[in-house]
Amino acid sequence: MTKTSMTVNGKAVSAETEGRTLLSAYLREGLGLTGTHIGCDTSQCGACVVHVDGKAVKSCSVFAQDVEGADVTTIEGMANADGSLGTIQQAFQDHHGLQCGFCTPGMVMSSAALLAENPTPTEAEVRHYLEGNICRCTGYHNIVKAVMAASGQAVPAE
């Protein structure tokens, strides 16, 4: 075991790791940040997406030691400073973009990465960008709506 340090949600943190400790395990078990979820073992589902140095990555497919010193943001770091929901989080609630909540952290993190790259994506661009995030509950309708609404665009009435 070695001590691995990084910045998570603006705070300097460290935890014990092995070489095989995944970033997702570092966050969940090392730091107790259980908002990052594990939904698969093949880098497909995207429930574990976090931002590493501003980029969306699947935290289940990165070794913690490989991103030592990085600046990591997780779902726990997405609310406003006063604790209220951030714009994307609020849009997900307003448009019922989540049901069981399990894929939601990854969806929010991927959506945030999308809007950072492309502030007003088309519907097709949203759908394409989210292809690495699987949701089993919503049929994606309200997720896509929420992301478009978060970008300030019109969405279908229903």
């Binding site: 259980t34 979820h37 726990e76 609630q93 019922h96």
Partner: peptide, 19 residues
Amino acid sequence: TKRREDIRFLTGKGRYTDD
């Protein structure tokens, strides 16, 4: 009505069995 449970799910405070 907007869902009250969303607040915890959207902020990473849901409590699933593995949590």
